[in-house]
Design a protein around this nucleic acid. Structure first.
Lengths: 201, 201
DNA sequence: AAATTAAATGAACATTGTTCAGTATTCCAA
DNA sequence: TTGGAATACTGAACAATGTTCATTTAATTT
């Protein structure tokens, strides 16, 4: 009779509402500075209701982290239209840095904050989001190797090196450690150096 | 009459005692999971006494972060005996990665956690610790350029690129993001790739 | 020995995540 | 239509946190 379905839909809607409010608050005030009460206020429900829809704060953080990866993935998918793997790899770095620049708090949640990892561990799950993202980078590196780049290198460590580099560039800015360099835009300028290096490999 | 001096010395001693206890607790339980009460218990003084010696928790975190940089600096100073700048740069990377591996919580405090930066901002100070460390890397890069390496590159962005890379390698491990790579020892294996790249520049 | 200064205390407060017994609402069968 | 059952929602209450500050204790000077 469709009632069960409608209820399920309504539950899903409030769940989404909570997540959207949480995401907005996180972007505004920073992940650390948002309380369950803030979120409850924003969606105009009680504290207890939040706990009906999410087991605890970690569950909210994990769900949000997953939303972040969906967005990053959709940006990466666009790159599939770049046929040359080296050009694709170069562009992927730009996309990654741009994403971190536009969504610093979300980036933090995805790649630095421990909470989502705790959630995954608690429920004996795998970090599929990270797995997929890393595979994307690794595959690009392997495709580059197939057409002659990166001779004498191994794909896996090299992929981790490249990921680490762009992650480091972004996370040092987000953790407010990059300003002492005196660079105008550290990730952009440093990534430009990396592109120059790539041409020699 | 020396009483003032003795008192100043005693104050300094208790301050050190608090910091040492805090450092031990941080290494044991992780920075996030140590409370002022834990520290007070460890040194067998009351909560209030901690606040006599440190304005707030950020002040403790900042003082500890500074101790971490002193240790890292002393490890870097040993490298001054390596005359070839490129060999020095390569060795510095190893030292950096080793330090992060041995002191993950301290590393987090030095390069990821916001508290020490908040403390610095509150008192209108500069991040001298980071400044000095980055200068060390930049100088090594410049020395390499003087003897013909890194042609066509600029020292500052390149130094930030290298710092970002090793920082990324370490911080992804510490934030538990690196296990999905399947690598045994991600920083070590990825840094080995970087060394191979350096030889081509 | 008294007075003054310095050091140490811990009860108390506001804020946090979290729980859960209770209330309100919705649903469906009689 | 209505009663009872299932579902959804509530917010008071709890423990733990960082922090403050009036009070007590100790040390020093007069």
């Amino acid at each position: 009779m469709g009632v069960t379905e409608r209820k399920a839909r309504e539950k899903e809607e409030l769940r989404s509402l909570i997540l959207e409010a949480a995401m907005r608050l996180f972007a505004e005030k920073g992940v650390e500075n948002v309380t369950i009460r803030n979120i409850a206020d924003a969606v105009e429900y009680s504290i207890g209701t939040i706990y009906v829809y999410f087991k605890d704060k970690n569950a909210i953080l994990h769900a949000l982290h997953t939303k972040g990866f969906a967005e990053l993935r959709s940006r990466f998918l666009v790159l599939m239209h770049v046929n040359n793997p080296m050009e694709r790899l170069k562009a992927a770095g730009h996309v990654y840095i741009q994403f971190a620049h536009e969504n610093p708090e979300m980036y933090n949640l995805m790649f630095s904050i421990i909470a989502p990892m705790d959630f995954i561990e608690t429920w004996n799950n795998e970090w599929n989001e990270g797995q997929a993202t890393f595979s994307f980078v690794r595959d690009m590196v392997q495709d580059c190797m197939k057409i002659g780049y990166f001779g004498g290198h191994s794909a896996l460590p090299l992929a981790y090196m490249i990921w680490s580099m762009v992650h480091g560039m972004c996370s040092l800015v987000i953790s407010r450690r990059a300003s002492i360099t005196g660079l105008e835009n550290p990730p952009a300028e440093a990534y430009a150096e990396f592109l120059r290096i790539l041409d020699k490999l």
